[in-house]
Design a protein around this nucleic acid. Sequence first.
DNA 1: AAATCGACCTGATGTAGATCAACTCAAGGT
DNA 2: ACCTTGAGTTGATCTACATCAGGTCGATTT
Lengths: 244, 244
Amino acid sequence: MKKIFVGFERPLSCRTCRMNSLCLPLGLDADDLHKLDGLIERKKPLQPREGVFFSGAPFTSIYAVRSGSIKSFCIDADGREQVTGFYFPGEIFGWDGLADEQHQNTAIALETTSICEIPYEQLDNLGNSIPSVQKYVIKLLSREINADQRLIALLAGNSARQKLASLLLSISDRLAQQGLSSTRLWLPMSRGEISNYLGLTVETVSRVLGHFQRSKYLTVNKKEIEILNKQALRDLMHSAEEVE
Amino acid sequence: MKKIFVGFERPLSCRTCRMNSLCLPLGLDADDLHKLDGLIERKKPLQPREGVFFSGAPFTSIYAVRSGSIKSFCIDADGREQVTGFYFPGEIFGWDGLADEQHQNTAIALETTSICEIPYEQLDNLGNSIPSVQKYVIKLLSREINADQRLIALLAGNSARQKLASLLLSISDRLAQQGLSSTRLWLPMSRGEISNYLGLTVETVSRVLGHFQRSKYLTVNKKEIEILNKQALRDLMHSAEEVE
DNA sequence: AAATCGACCTGATGTAGATCAACTCAAGGT
DNA sequence: ACCTTGAGTTGATCTACATCAGGTCGATTT
């Protein structure tokens, strides 16, 4: 069981990180950027299923995905797991602990994943002297709100096909933002995790993927998806009726 | 069509506002509080269905409900309305415009409603000199995220009965925080707005309310609800099975 | 290579909630 | 007083998705 990430390129600073324009583009000058660098911990890669933080744990940091992927979930009153989000490279997670100073969700790696840890107290201190830091924190939070509200709209008013189409398009877009292929994608999460996230069952996810494949919208090979007809998936979102 | 709010008690400052402990409890000293007072506009009451802001409009302010209630909603790709939130006295809304500097949602009054408008640019300026202001903004945003994620969990994994029980309990709790009755409540929104919010139909909402009434959990009289057995509603959330 | 296991798929059947349709009731308008 | 309108309720029927029950396949263990 040897490490496979021997040749892994570890950015030494936010300045040279290839996702610096997405992660914390704070408009900082060289000096301030240096300070930011100083507080970010680049952790060693997480193993698949390894946890980042756990529900109930005190909130200390937020995290940026450098490579790999993360799922966050909570356990609701009746003990069932509810997936609340998937996070891909360039995305920031962990805000759920901020309001009450303890995490509501648990976050785990879906695959071998490397993340940057940003201790919140220090970020906050930095924000006291550099208002643009706090402004950017506020912007990130408001983006999370918009994303959550989009998900609420998706869950409340859409069919299984629309939900799945929407998720695939979302993942495609987010990978494209990282300069990765938007048509060939590898789903790091299981069918069970997808179905839970979308409020469906595994069987339904499986059948809908089968249907999409038969309709030539995409091809499915285990966790590999190739999108053949992105427009068809988009059209699915805009009209209740589908052309068979 | 004369004004019915002649005797309406209008707080002259945040200091004397009866919900100051909920609205913006920033831990400000008298001097700072005075500055905050200076930027808050106490608008004249909104008529029922009157809009506060509209989807696509530039983001300028956030708003606090002083009395009455607000619903916010967006129009998704296929033109359907999707309710994203209800807001009661002491609650703050309008964050949805912050990320992209324009509102995603439209917000309208559900009844005669008075609100405070807080121009965001000025709040932001205040935040530059008083870090605790920005910190409180951040706290409010993270609460909104937690609330949204709770709704996501509700929509993804629960039955019609659980959804409705959860909404009623939530409204009850929020009114109780304002010192109002937590058992006798008046729903300012229509059945259609409830059903849309919960991802159900009007008929289902009607039937579930009927069921709750027959089970002696509550009594329904149009928009008036009296909760008779709050524990039964809570139990509904924690177990899939229900005792008939 | 046989057995075990877990993720995924597929078919048959069941059901919660949607849809369709008819009705009641209260509020305005003329 | 009568008509209209819209919100709400209630019943009959339909259907998308859940549930249940076998399956396949590939990875891991023995």
